[in-house]
Amino acid sequence: MRTPDRPLKIAVMSFAHTHARGYIDLLKGTPSVSLLTSDPGEHSDTELRGRAFAEHLGVDYVDSYDELMAWQPDAVIVTSENARHRADVERAAAAGAHILCEKPLATSHEDGVAMLEAADAAGVILMVAFPVRFASTFSRLKAEYDAGQLGQVFSIRGSNNGKLPSERAWFTDPELSGGGALVDHVVHIADLLEALMGAAPVSVTAVTNQKLHADRARAETAGLVTISYDNGVIAAIDCSWSQPDTAPSWGGVSVTLAGTAGTVAVDFFGPRARGLDTATGLPIEAPYGPNFDEALLSSFIDAVCSGEQPQPDGGVGLRTLDIVLAAQESARTGRTIAVADVASSS
């Protein structure tokens, strides 16, 4: 990461999202970064939150966002509940801080637009945390795509499957999360396809159900989505929380592309050593590979130092959110939804 003239002051707003831990773990060991966190509000006794979580991680903490903003951070990482992203981003922007916002950008198109406007008005960077596009395998795919080695791409399959998030209850509370598996997982693949092709999604069809984790879920736990893009490409995404709680690893992200010159399949979190536990016969899986969050944070810090807006920006966040909103509308109505209608109706 680039070294600023003085330690860069980065504030973390909320420990609601489990990714907060990963970002803090990476940043707290960075000498050029000074870190301060806050996670105000009432927290369930069953979740390690607030000051206790900060102490657990060994990071500085204040009790309120007022105190956090009074520290005058250069940059803010927003890892609150999805539905609270707008309020937190607006607050950070008003304080003149550059912003890295956890995905999805927001839970409504209107909120997303307001967040982009707030960042614009304050003249601060708004970046959305899509780490997978920072994978070296994605860089290779992008290079081969741009060089024409796939020919004309005509069909894509993507999957982002994981466990039902259980460390934080809000993930399955639609009021705070904005939905279920669709809002949690479609955006990662949608971001990769935007970064790769730069094409606009035209229409979206989705089917969902709530059979998996039926006792705990208050929104869809399985979802299949098809997207037609304006460059003629068709894509399908499986966003299901279909990795059982008992699985040896969290899940994964993969894409398979078909072009007139051939196919490429990328399994971004695929490589692992495999074995068996002798006593139980259960599989041992030890995934390995670079931490994409590190490259994401490095890119954000570079941008904060240079003042230049990095990718993925708020616009990507909003366009990938629109795909989710169209998918949710399709699942509700049983109709294929024009993405433009989602963006104009809210």
Partner: peptide
């Protein structure tokens, strides 16, 4: 040529079927 087909089964199960006729 390629296509994606989505099926909703009476049971509520959902299926995705992908087909590629490629180079």
């Amino acid at each position: 040529e390629a296509a994606h087909v989505l099926l909703t089964h009476s049971s509520g199960a959902i299926s995705h079927i992908a087909g590629i006729w490629g180079p």
